[in-house]
Nucleic acid binder design. Structure first.
Lengths: 145, 145
DNA sequence: TGACTAGGTTTCCAATGGTGACTTGATGCC
DNA sequence: GGCATCAAGTCACCATTGGAAACCTAGTCA
């Protein structure tokens, strides 16, 4: 049966010791989380969600990514079964990357992340500015005794 | 072929140049994404979602985090207005971290990420094993001409 | 006197990520 | 013939990041 604990649903991590637990350093779930919670992964999967793309096409869309990181990230995404790689023996060889069904389920959960970043960035920047303004003349913050 | 890119409101990244665009390296949205798409952030916010916690309490729950990274991550989360920090002048000083309303909206979008990691890890590990098994006797994969 | 607590900071070293040059193989240009 | 070009990478080198462990502060306990 499905012994998977959905989302730690209301349970503290310490109560799920022998089940997948992203808070235990040994658990493979943690490795999975470490790999998908990476800036390039979020962006690449977001693009591939819209359809297959070629190497340099991705590189052009994702401003600032180096060839090395793109190649490296794609390779590990392929290894993990999240994207597929297809080589066409055209004149200069063409390589097409596409999202797999498994990758698509992940990409769906990543969309809200980008949306959040885009909608709440203003608040974050404001908070950051306020914080930077106050540091320096900070009145030794001891709030409660 | 129509590639609808959901999550950027149906728009291609290149069509939203003057709007928040996580794919433009200069855009603040990208900075926001870089910071929240980080393994410690996901885990910390996940814990604080369940209620306020103290420094060493967090450290014990998150297996494998160093004091430095916990302190550093909490500080930048506070700067960005995602968590609040409250100092109690008890005997050894007590510091309590809590999630802010803004942080709570982010934490909600992060839950599916942990759930995904926990439910799909088996498939990922299987794919990884298959990939590692085949490399070495790889038959020069040229799929289509 | 010394050890212990909570909540950090500092120092040092190893791993990660970015930059730019190089590769490969066929094709067009001069 | 010889040279440059393209896509899709790899490689060598250097800067930044992250981890481990020591240290700090201040009060309390044995």
């Amino acid at each position: 049966m499905d012994r998977t604990l959905l989302g730690l649903g209301g349970k503290r991590p310490s109560e799920v010791d022998q089940l997948p637990d992203a808070y235990a350093s040994g658990c493979p779930t943690r490795q999975a989380l470490d790999r998908i919670a990476d800036k390039w992964t979020v962006l690449i999967l977001g693009l591939l969600e819209g359809g297959p793309m070629r190497f340099n096409q991705l590189r052009r869309e994702i401003e600032g990514i180096s060839q090395k990181m793109l190649s490296q990230t794609l390779k590990s995404l392929e290894r993990d079964g999240l994207v597929s790689r297809k080589v066409f023996a055209t004149v200069p060889v063409t390589v097409e990357y596409a999202i797999t069904p498994l990758g698509a389920t992940l990409a769906e959960t990543l969309v809200p992340l980008r949306v959040w970043a885009e909608t709440h960035i203003a608040q974050v920047l404001e908070s950051r500015a306020a914080y930077d303004r106050d540091e320096g003349d900070a009145p030794a913050r001891l709030d409660v005794a």
